[in-house]
Design a protein around this nucleic acid. Structure first.
Lengths: 342, 342
DNA sequence: GTGAAAGCGCTAACAT
DNA sequence: ATGTTAGCGCTTTCAC
């Protein structure tokens, strides 16, 4: 069986037309059960596999979606992709993956590649540095639906799936307060990404509700990286009113903070409590193990696909229904050694 | 510009035929320079993008390759993918990524999906559990070239790119000997994967060359996981001649060992030296930091693509030239706290 | 150096 | 319930 069987081959065997075979294979309504059965049997016997290329060309749909992630090396995104793949698979969609490597130029190239690969829709999580969204907006012209997950920008009116960052940050901060920490600092991220802004707000709100007025100095605006975590710690340690706890916007930043603190022989959690965000794999393995907020990545992937699926279905129709829709997932707290001093 | 420009549109503007435009765009020899220039200018102006679907259908080539990895969450594979993407991009190829999640069934599904997506070639790294290679061998029937990277099986006669595992293991073991460890154990992996077998051999060889005769007990055959590392340690610790160092087949296994040792209050590296393999991200972050062997993942990805590229080029031609070709990369040692006691 | 014509494999109007 | 026909956009003989 060296050459692939086509619809015509099946048609010939059964003395029907290719159109009938196509319809049978696609479970069209107006085809008799017997014909469907017969067609499928022959297809099986001939090891027929649908030629997606031809199908796409004719139908204008590819049953492929594109996914753009900053980096597959970040565990969280790997998990989201699992969720996406699971949901996509259920609906007969394949997933094309692209890594932006946190670079806007790569993002742009990725989008172009996905467009010309003929994907029916795109799921994306923004690179940290992306501030110009032109390449994303261009998808509209191509009638290719787009859904953001995790790293979204609310101002664009593009549907998104995120964890409830505000609540997550609130929980983290509240927990540090409950552990008896008094001067809780925050290492924040790029403010053009909604998720980072919302975490900052959640942090502020928790302090406010506990009648704590944060010093200006307690908020360090970094760029979300191990290095930023280290810098932030250096900065905090030379303050007059040195903080006694840090809520970091994200686990890698928290990791940088932990490393720096250890090198400076500051005890965690005794002298400084730490909570991160994202529940990255390494958090459970480092010493002390890292408290963090889980973002339900698999669930996030599934929801993101579901949203995109609806958009693709209603493509030429009522887009406004899903416009601006935003799915929020509940964050789950994992408190470990780095913040448990009681 | 809502609807995509086609070759026919360009042809109309220039009063030539679509065939000429196609040839100009593809830099065919028998087309005048002026025509090429004119065509390309109009294409630019009309924002023409080649419809890859149509192109694929007609030419039988898609300029896409598929990559199957066990898990994007394993850092190493993410890096390899970077390398693949870089090399592929240079040659105008896009990359379709599939995660097998270490499950042979998913591997099979992935291959089928990639075939029907019309990829021109496949790069794959085997799932740990894969022992039946039928789905890979079926690619031959489809004339789709295949190259393994990292997790290969030599017996299949399929070209592969791997790090020189023997030498890497040798270096790791030699280093432990140099650090004064006397009873060096090895946690091994599934023996049907060449890389794991070769690491075992490298380990044995280094011991042999140092006139150390390994006890039978010192080799623990695990399944490459954190859990396996823990089990191995439990096993080693109850031996009469308890080992004083462990060379683990891979970093996650080493991590399991480290965790277990720490829980049992056995000091690393004083009482037990540890070396892993793969240079996973977390290795630099845990305490103590993990000694390991880097596999040059980016380079590996680039080489793998290059091999596949050659295979795709010589598709109908002389396949035997590249048959069985095996690229070996030099492993690079990173010795950190977990094995440095001098 | 360029044109004419055919067709990759499939699907979707329009018939019947 | 099925057949007929046409064509998605491109590439590739075969002409000239």
């Amino acid at each position: 069986m060296n050459i692939r069987a086509t619809i015509a081959d099946i048609a010939k065997v059964l003395n029907v037309t290719p159109a009938t075979v196509s319809r049978a294979l696609n479970n069209h309504p107006g085809i008799s059960q017997e014909t469907k059965k017969a067609v499928k049997e022959v297809a099986e016997k001939l090891q027929y596999k649908r030629n997606k290329i031809a199908s796409s060309l004719r139908s204008g749909r590819s049953n492929m979606i594109g996914v753009i992630i900053p980096s597959a090396a970040i565990n969280f995104f790997g998990e989201v992709v699992h969720g996406i793949e699971a949901a996509a698979g259920e609906h007969g969609y394949s997933v094309l993956l692209y890594q932006s490597n946190e670079l806007p130029e790569f993002e742009k190239k990725g989008i172009e590649a996905l467009i010309s690969a003929g994907v029916d829709g795109i799921l994306a999580s923004l690179a940290k540095g992306t501030e110009d969204f032109g390449h994303y907006l261009s998808l509209e012209e191509h009638q290719i639906p787009l859904v953001f997950f995790d790293r979204a920008n609310d101002a664009l009116g593009i549907p998104s799936v995120v964890v409830d960052d505000f609540t997550g940050a609130y929980k983290a901060t509240e927990h540090l307060i409950a552990q008896g920490y008094k001067k809780i600092a925050h290492i924040s991220g790029q403010q053009h990404l909604s998720i980072f802004r919302n975490r900052l707000e959640g942090y502020k709100s928790a302090l406010h509700n506990a009648d704590i007025t944060p010093e200006e100095d307690w908020i360090f605006k970094g760029n979300v990286s191990i290095a930023a975590g280290r810098e932030a710690v250096k900065y905090f340690l030379q303050l007059n009113h040195r903080p006694d706890a840090i809520f970091a916007v994200e686990d890698y930043t928290a990791l940088g903070a932990v490393k720096e603190l250890k090198e400076q022989y500051i005890r965690i959690p005794e002298d400084m409590g730490i909570v991160g965000f994202a529940n990255e794999d390494f958090g459970a393995h480092i010493t002390p193990s890292l408290s963090t907020i889980d973002q339900q990545p698999v669930q996030m992937g599934k929801e993101a696909f579901r949203l995109l699926y609806d958009l693709m279905a209603s493509k030429r129709g009522d887009l406004t229904a899903v416009r601006n829709s935003k799915v929020m997932l509940e964050p789950i707290a994992f408190f470990r050694q780095s913040s448990l001093r009681k």
